[in-house]
Design a binder for these strands. Structure first.
Lengths: 210, 210
DNA sequence: CGACATCTGTCACGCACTGACAGATTCGCT
DNA sequence: AGCGAATCTGTCAGTGCGTGACAGATGTCG
């Protein structure tokens, strides 16, 4: 799952930082699920890990950032999955398989699937988390469009098509997630995403009603 | 521009409220452009209109809401423009013309075009405004997808295609705006939006580089 | 004019977030 | 091991956003 051959030579300091970071995330999600996002204060999260609230803000820029940290990781996973797709695949098709693949991995519980399920709950519950999540997605669109441009073999700034593809793919994913938690809670997100991308591939300029 | 035949019988109280609301918006944009969004406090905006800051929050839910109030109005304008499109037009084509039409109207300065130009500046400058703007767009997607569904003559909740179309169209618009303020400041947003929608109509599953 | 609804200012408060400083911890080097 | 340098952390003080509660001002209607 992490084929990047980063040397594991983490110093003591690095390991400590990583542990407190994970502890903060765990404590935060624990509190968010029990009391809700708004009702949870940063002080409470910090106390649960026995650090000062000042330290919390040295790890996360805001309370919302804890909630969206997992989503950010998913974006990074999609980048890896996209690189692994065969080079000849059309862009939307490659994006489709990369996204579905990552979502299935999370659904299988290879990573903490409890928090994975919790995130959509948080986005739905709290407008602040929703806003931060959307902002983060927009930030990642630059990177994603660069990779799409590389696949197409075009200039990522001059040609608007990679940006359009990245943005549209992200939109399709958001639709899938929203549909999942609103109208189709029984379906898996990966299946809904797969269908959404299939519609994209087929073209979306539907005729008006007769 | 406002063909809705609402009777102009506004009471004194209504008119006063409308005036303070507009005064707050004007003062806010004035301060935002001179000092920047972050550096402007709600107290300053309120003082400029000679009301208490408490009153400010009775008109706007947050400081960001003032900045995005104009964008919200643009969404409403698009709804009207969409209703005016011929019924037989395919959905993306209808959306394309509706959006371009509204954008051109703002560029022509039929409404306050100074604030119109300022908004994209604010979104770019302040992450908080960006986040709120994206959130507002997502809120409006429900309404937009309902109208797309009506055009297609399908059920807006059971059929995922209207939601997909609305979301994708919104994404295309965002790409156009981003490209405008980043790489093509000489082009008009309406033209860039027109081109983005043209790409959508043509399909976007581009082949990989040979 | 008087009863009523609505709007507004003042006060008090909680919480998110930040800069500055000092003490503790770790690192790199001898 | 020991020492100086770099980094991390807690404490403190402060700013600004946003909200409930209450009282007074203002508009509304008979």
């Amino acid at each position: 799952m992490s084929p990047t051959t980063t040397v594991e030579v983490t110093s003591l300091r690095e390991r400590k930082k990583q542990r407190t970071r994970e502890a903060l995330i765990d404590a935060a999600f624990e509190l968010f699920t029990t009391k809700g996002f708004e009702a949870t204060t940063v002080d409470e999260i910090a106390e649960a890990v026995e650090v000062s609230s000042r330290t919390f803000f040295r790890y996360f820029g805001s309370k919302e950032d804890v909630a969206t940290s997992l989503q950010l990781q998913q974006f990074l996973d999609v980048y890896s999955a996209l690189d692994a797709r065969p080079a000849g695949e059309p862009v939307v098709t490659a994006l489709r398989h990369a996204c579905v693949q990552v979502l299935r991995a999370y659904e299988e519980g290879e990573n903490d699937s409890a928090q994975f399920a919790c995130v959509t709950q948080l986005v739905q519950e709290s407008p602040a988390v929703m806003a931060r999540s959307l902002e983060m997605c927009t930030e990642q669109l630059d990177e994603l469009s660069r990779r799409v441009a590389a696949r197409m073999g075009v200039d990522p700034v001059a040609d608007p098509r990679p940006k359009l593809v990245a943005s549209v793919a992200s939109a399709a994913l958001q639709v899938a997630v929203r549909a999942w938690r609103e109208t189709e809670p029984d379906e898996k997100v990966s299946d809904l995403a797969d269908r959404a991308f299939a519609l994209l591939e087929a073209g979306i300029n539907y005729p008006a009603a007769p």
